[in-house]
């Protein structure tokens, strides 16, 4: 049964790690703007004319 002491310690430790992760996220400003990143991810990348392809064909 004494293994339970160890497990309880582990559970508190894991919980503390998650709490720490939340504070880290809070501090680095991840919760400051919860709207814009969601829009930003929907923008398409620019389609660039690939020059290497053209060279390849002409070769």
């Amino acid at each position: 049964m004494s293994i339970l002491y160890f497990l309880i310690g582990c559970s508190v430790l894991v919980a503390l790690i998650f709490l720490g992760a939340f504070f880290w996220a809070l501090k680095s400003g991840q919760h400051d703007d919860v709207y814009t990143p969601g829009v930003r991810i929907l923008f398409d990348d620019e389609v660039k004319e690939d020059k290497s392809d053209k060279n390849h064909i002409s070769d």
Binding site: D32, D33, Y35, T36, V39, R40, L42, F43
Partner: peptide, 27 residues
């Protein structure tokens, strides 16, 4: 609108000296 976000975050296309622009839409 989202077009505003797109445009203002691509300011570097108008002038490369602006190397980053970030929008906080709600504010």
């Amino acid at each position: 609108c989202s077009s505003c976000i797109w445009l203002l975050e691509h300011l570097y296309k108008i002038n490369p000296a602006i190397f980053s622009s970030r929008i906080d839409f709600l504010k």
